[in-house]
Design a protein around this nucleic acid. Structure first.
Length: 881
RNA sequence: GGGAGAUUAGCUCAGCUGGUUCAGAGCACCUGCCUUACAAGCAGGGGGUCACAGGUUCGAACCCUGUAUCUCCCACCA
């Protein structure tokens, strides 16, 4: 068999993904096994695969593949999110390119375009996930706007409305003038900005006095309906009951007094613009002020302003400063730093704006979602996020759930022309309900709310509705088989940025409609950053295209690369060199396989002691490391699990085991290997492939099938995860470590060309490694089993066979007696000190009273260990005199 | 302003109850090797006042108190 020297990943990726799909290895249906379920955080349907997805989905795939191998009924549900704002923006932009204006289209026509777009491009990201190797149950692919899922969203709205948790009200919302919609607080990104603080003079009515008011938003002056000062501010107490004249529009407004105003900031006066600032709005409510909205939805100045009408808000700001300056009404302009809110979706500057919106009262529904995270029913990994979560949940605001868009689930609220409102699933039902309130109702006058619901208002149901969208109206006791079997899911892997948007809300929904948590573990990944610590983003252009990376390093290489640098909950500083490391690892594995594939089993070949020792050792080593790997997995320490696997394969298997068992060359010809060694080696290779499989699905499947002919169903993807040996021989492992040191030292000495063979021998004899080797041997001579050591005695010396060269090491070590005494004394002193400390601890009443029994047990063990060690050392010292 | 977390080798990070796993790993770097699985490799090597200053302790990377720097979240002052 001719095997290429370097591993060709692209080919394996194509072959195996299709093979797995065809054989339905990803498919899951309820059966007698325990389920292990993950629902994908649905990527935006507009999305293309970026580094964040890669990280996220690789972790999910690793978890699901391992669960599958552990014998669980593994189900990973894929899907996409309709992402109302992002998608609508994209479709609007696309239509614009075609010369179509959204405003000219009817709602129905626009939605037709949007659906068309979704059908055409909506599946791209899922196809990309397949390239990565994602082993989702693709038959279960869902979309948050699938008919049944949308219906569930409407059911939920109606249910919450009937429970009295949804209300409609005029509120200050974050208005996105570009997207022409309200966005939630969480979708506003505050960025530090350099702003001008303009000091504007307001004339006091009936006096030649002016009041100076500092503002960063002079364009809202036309909306001023009061000036506010702190009642304790002595500078202004004489102005009680006075009015001022607002510049530009010459409106007379009162001076009001409120504790809210900070005396120290600016001039200690605040212009109150209730329509354009949340705090001003609150002040306006409190002091019953008039509200004048000077901005149009698109951010231009409105008719109500009475000046600068139609001008853009930023242009107006510049112009108004100029005009005020000309009128001598600007006393000074300061440069200050403040925070400006930007829309996460469109990056437009957010405008606080009054509008009629639908809200969900959070206080009634959010309690269980908080309690069950605090009591550990739902685990956040890493748990440092619990505090953040708690803080948010305790201060949660009502959720504005309406969006002024067309793409999404339309709010099932209906109005008649008399101002009555009802909530109903269909127009027919709405008419019935409205008739009760309005006897003269005509069918034509019934109008549905124009707005749609926030995207998160559908995705918060995701872990429920992907299985059974009808459960909301049927009730949880009538859930279908799927939901009963798969819910609650096991793990959720997502980014901490959407802990509140999504995770918290899913928890709320889970308890509200299922009475149970939606997931047990929430693994929060970090944010993928570049080497300089900047967030990877399209606009910065610092994000590599994941598909290019796959092409360059192979999917396995990229997967390994991503996870090598991603400790849970920490951001990861991504660098392509990690992928290179991943690819190199894949190649290493490939070559280990090449070596083994080249072995020829000879019927006459006998197993050497070295081979025997190596086999025993590796069996222990494999078990020992597997136990560690399992432990890392159980704590979701993915990078550690991977690194342990990496070192097990590279260092232990390739560098030591294979080197030890590989047959010698005689006359340029590789010797045959005995069957026992060969079989053991194949067995180890198979175990290692299984352990590697979750990380590197393609290469492991490829090699799995190249090792021997297998049945079509005998794939590594469904192979059984190896088990840990119960009787681990720790002593043997420790002894082998000593041998390794010796071998390394001998190799090193051998390589020193300037030394003669005799000199080399001397160096070896005197080396620390040899001494420590014999230290061990003297104590446990009978147990010696170093792989490179053979038992024959040559004239009072042991013969060490290390590769092709032999070294003779005298049995009686000529150690320097003084040195040895010094060493032993030092060690003895240390142990005595250690013993003393343990004993102090154990005699400490407070410690004994407070410590757990196990902790005391550990201390007692330390004490007895130290005692026996001291005894041994004293014996050794007495022998030396 | 409120809260959370971090600071250990050039980089990314481990280090669990304070001590015989205590200063570690991987990568990068340096030196020597194209040796018969692998140069995408092998063998060796250098490198850290554990951010700083105090304290507690027989003993501190680890506990306490300050300081500095960074990151994130929440709120936000015109």
């Amino acid at each position: 068999m001719e095997i290429a020297k370097t591993y060709n990943s692209a080919q394996a990726e194509q072959t195996w993904y299709k093979y797995w799909l065809d054989n339905k290895f990803f498919k899951s249906t309820p059966d007698h096994r325990t389920p292990y379920t993950i629902v994908i955080p649905p990527p935006n349907v507009t999305g293309v695969l970026h580094m964040g997805h890669m990280l996220n989905n690789t972790i999910q795939d690793v978890l699901i593949r391992r669960a599958r191998m552990l014998g669980f009924n593994a189900c990973w549900v894929p899907g996409t999110d309709h992402a109302s704002i992002a998608t609508e923006a994209k479709v609007v932009a696309l239509l614009k390119e075609q010369g179509i204006n959204k405003a000219d289209l009817s709602r129905e026509d626009f939605l037709k375009h949007a659906w068309g777009w979704k059908e055409k491009y909506g599946g791209i990201i899922l196809e990309q996930l397949k390239k990565l190797g994602a082993s989702c149950d693709w038959d279960r692919t869902r979309f948050t706007m699938d008919e049944p899922l949308s219906e569930a969203v409407i059911d939920v709205f109606i249910d919450l409305y009937n429970k009295g948790n949804i209300y409609r009200g005029v509120r200050m919302v974050n208005w996105d003038p570009q997207g022409l919609t309200a966005v939630s607080d969480e979708e506003v990104i505050h960025k530090e900005a350099q702003s001008k603080l303009v000091y504007v003079k307001y004339k006091i009515e009936g006096a030649e006095e002016f009041m100076t008011v500092a503002t960063t938003r002079p364009e809202t002056i036309m909306g001023d309906t009061a000036i506010c000062v702190n009642p304790t501010d002595e500078r202004y107490t004489h102005l009680k009951g006075k009015n001022v004249i607002v510049p530009v529009v010459n409106r007379v407004v009162p001076i009001i007094f409120d504790e809210y105003v900070d005396k120290e900031f600016g001039t200690g006066t605040l212009k109150v613009t209730p329509a354009h600032d949340i705090n001003d709005f609150n002040l306006g409510q409190k002091h019953k002020l008039q509200t004048i909205d000077v901005l149009n939805p698109n951010g231009t100045i409105s008719e109500a302003a009475g000046a600068y009408v139609g001008m853009d808000r930023f242009a107006c700001r510049k112009q108004i400063i100029k005009d005020l300056e000309e009128q001598g009404l600007v006393s000074k302009i300061e440069e200050i730093k403040n925070k400006v809110g930007y829309s996460e979706r469109t990056n437009a500057v957010i405008e606080p704006r009054l509008s009629m919106q639908w809200f969900l009262k959070m206080e009634n529904v959010s309690k269980p979602a908080l309690e069950n995270v605090l009591n550990g029913e739902i685990k956040l990994i890493p748990d440092k996020f619990i505090n953040t979560y708690k803080h948010w949940m305790e201060n949660v605001h009502d959720w504005c759930i309406s969006r002024q868009l067309w793409w999404g689930q339309r709010i099932p609220a209906w109005y008649d022309d008399k101002g009555n409102t009802v909530v109903a699933k269909t127009k027919e039902e709405a008419i019935v309900q409205l008739r009760i309130k309005n006897a003269e109702l005509t069918t034509e006058s019934v109008k549905q709310d124009e707005d749609v619901l926030d995207t998160w208002f559908s995705s918060w149901l995701w872990p429920i509705t992907v299985f059974d969208p009808a459960v909301i109206r049927n009730g949880k006791e009538n859930a279908n088989e799927d939901l009963k079997y798969y819910y609650p899911t096991n793990d959720l892997v997502t980014a901490p940025e959407i802990l509140f948007f999504w995770v918290a809300r899913m928890a709320i929904a889970g308890y509200e409609w299922m009475g149970e948590k939606p997931f047990t573990n929430v693994y929060l990944t970090g944010i993928v950053r570049d080497k300089l610590g900047r967030k990877m983003s399209k606009s910065l252009g610092n994000s590599p295209d994941p598909l290019d990376l796959i092409e360059k390093y192979g999917a396995d290489g990229v997967r390994v690369g991503m996870l090598l640098c991603s400790p849970a909950g920490n951001d990861l500083m991504f660098d392509e060199s990690y992928c290179e490391q991943g690819r190199n690892f894949a190649n290493k594995v490939w070559n280990a396989f090449r070596l083994i594939a080249g072995f020829e089993v000879g019927s006459d070949a006998v197993q050497s002691d070295a081979q025997k020792a190596a086999i025993t050792w590796f069996e222990n080593k494999l078990s020992e490391q597997l136990e560690i790997i399992n432990d890392h997995y159980s704590k979701y320490r993915m990078s550690d699990a991977l690194m342990t696997t990496y070192k097990l394969v590279w260092d232990d298997f390739c560098a030591w085991y294979l080197e030890a068992i590989k047959p010698d060359f005689i006359d340029g010809k590789a010797q045959p290997i005995d069957k026992a060694t060969y079989d053991a080696t194949i067995g180890y290779l198979e175990s290692l492939l299984k352990i590697m499989h979750p990380w590197m699905p393609f290469i492991t499947e490829e090699i799995w099938h190249l090792i021997k002919e297998r049945d079509t169903k005998d794939c590594i993807i469904v192979a059984e995860w190896p088990t840990v040996k119960s009787n681990l021989d720790k002593k043997q492992l420790a002894e082998f470590e000593v041998s390794k040191e010796l071998v390394a030292m001998v190799r090193n000495v051998r390589a020193q060309k300037q030394l003669s063979p005799k000199e080399k021998l001397e160096v070896i004899e005197k080396s620390e490694a040899t001494r420590s080797y014999f230290d061990n041997t003297i104590i446990k001579l009978a147990n010696l089993s170093a792989f490179s050591y053979t038992k024959e005695k040559v004239e009072g010396a042991f013969s060490f066979q290390i590769k092709t060269t032999e070294f003779y090491i005298p049995l009686a070590m000529t150690l320097n007696k003084e040195d040895e005494i010094e060493r032993l004394t030092k060690e003895l002193d240390y142990n005595k000190g250690f013993l003393k400390s343990v004993q102090i601890k154990l005699s400490n009443e407070k410690f004994v009273a407070n410590a757990k029994p196990e902790v005391i047990e550990v201390e007692r063990k330390k004490e007895s260990d130290a005692l026996s060690k001291i005894k041994t050392l004293e014996e050794q010292l007495s022998v030396l005199g």
